[in-house]
C-alpha cells in the first residue's frame, strides 16, 4: 500500500483480507442464533449426538409441550413484558418530548441549570440506587406492581437530551407563534403542532426505549417477586431450573421465544435502528 505502483496487487490482497474478516465476523454474529433456532426444533437425543446442525428437526411441538409443563410460561411472560415495555415507552417518549419542548420553546430562569442537571444524571444507572428504590416501594406498597417499572421512565434524561438536539433545528418558532395568535392554548400547541413534527425522532427513540425496557432484567427482578408477574428476561432464568436440566431442545426453544419479538422488530426496522445508534453517539 505504501508504494503507488504496487497498488493493484496489494489492493487485491487487501480486499481478500477485508472480506474474509468481515464474513468471519458475520458468521460469528449469526452462528449462536442459528444454533439456537435449529436446536429448538430438535430432540434432546439428537442434540446430544450432534450439538451443531443446520438441518431443522421435527420435534418443535414436542419441545413446546415439555416447555409448557414446567415453570416457563412464554405467553404470560410475553404479556407481562408487553405491558411494562409499552407503558414505559409511552411514558418515556411523551414526557421526554414535553420536557424537551419546555427547554426549547420557552425562556425560563432555571432552564440552563435544569438542562445541566439532565446531562449530569444521564449516565447514573438505576442499579446503584436500587436499594433505596425498593425500600421506598415497600413503604408505599408498590412491590409487585408494574407501575413501579413504568412510572420512573417519565424521567428519561437521555431521551430528553436527544429530543432537544433534534428539536432545536426542526421546530420553527414562527409556527408556534402563529398558532398562539389563532388563540390555541399552549398545551394544544404542543399536542397538535409540536408533537406531530417530532414524529421521526419519537419513532427512533421509541424503538430504543421499547427494546431496553423489554431486555431489562435487574429492576424487574427486584420489584417483581411473584412468578405470575415475571417478565420475559426473568423467564430465561427459569430455564436454569431442574425441570429442564436435560431437556436441551426445550431450553433452546424457550430462549427463542424470549427474543422472538426483538428479532422481528430488528428485522423490520434494522435500518432505522442503525441510523438511531449513529445519531445517538455523535455530538460535538
Amino acid at each position: 500500500m505504501t508504494v503507488r505502483n504496487s497498488k493493484k496487487p496489494s489492493a487485491v490482497v487487501f480486499s481478500i483480507v477485508a472480506y474474509t474478516f468481515c464474513i468471519l465476523l458475520a458468521i460469528l454474529s449469526i452462528m449462536p442464533f442459528v444454533v439456537m433456532i435449529v436446536n429448538a426444533t430438535r430432540s434432546t437425543a439428537q442434540i446430544q449426538e450432534h450439538a451443531i446442525s443446520f438441518i431443522p428437526g421435527t420435534e418443535l411441538m414436542k419441545n413446546m409441550k415439555i416447555l409448557s409443563t414446567g415453570t416457563f410460561h412464554p405467553m404470560r411472560g410475553f404479556v407481562n413484558s408487553l405491558i411494562v415495555s409499552v407503558g414505559s415507552t409511552v411514558c418515556a417518549i411523551y414526557f421526554s418530548t414535553m420536557t424537551a419542548y419546555a427547554i426549547v420553546a420557552y425562556e425560563w430562569k432555571l432552564k440552563r441549570g435544569f438542562f445541566t442537571v439532565i446531562l449530569a444524571v444521564m449516565m447514573i444507572p438505576a442499579q446503584v440506587t436500587s436499594i433505596g428504590f425498593i425500600q421506598m416501594m415497600y413503604k408505599i406498597g408498590m412491590v409487585n406492581n408494574f407501575l413501579a417499572l413504568i412510572l420512573p421512565s417519565i424521567a428519561s434524561p437521555a431521551i430528553v437530551f436527544f429530543m432537544r438536539q433534534y428539536m432545536i433545528p426542526s421546530l420553527p418558532m414562527e409556527i408556534l407563534q402563529s398558532a398562539r395568535i389563532d388563540g390555541a392554548s399552549e398545551f394544544r400547541i404542543f399536542n397538535q403542532i409540536a408533537l406531530p413534527m417530532m414524529k421521526p425522532a419519537m419513532a427512533t427513540q421509541a424503538i430504543f426505549a421499547f427494546v431496553s425496557s423489554w431486555n431489562n432484567l435487574f429492576m424487574p427482578s427486584i420489584i417483581l417477586t411473584k412468578d405470575r408477574l415475571y417478565t420475559m428476561p426473568m423467564m430465561v432464568s427459569q430455564l436454569r431450573g431442574d425441570m429442564y436440566r436435560t431437556e436441551y431442545g426445550s431450553i433452546y426453544l424457550g430462549l427463542c421465544l424470549t427474543v422472538l419479538p426483538i428479532l422481528v422488530v430488528y428485522f423490520l426496522l434494522s435500518k432505522h435502528i442503525i441510523a438511531g445508534v449513529a445519531l445517538g453517539g455523535v455530538k460535538g
Binding site: S29, T258, I262
Partner: peptide
C-alpha cells in the same frame, strides 16, 4: 445490520444461550 444484531438481543437470553 449483522454486526449490530447481538447488541439488541436480550442480554439474559444471550448469557443463557
Amino acid at each position: 445490520v449483522v454486526f449490530y444484531m447481538p447488541n439488541i438481543i436480550t442480554a439474559a437470553t444471550v448469557a443463557m444461550l
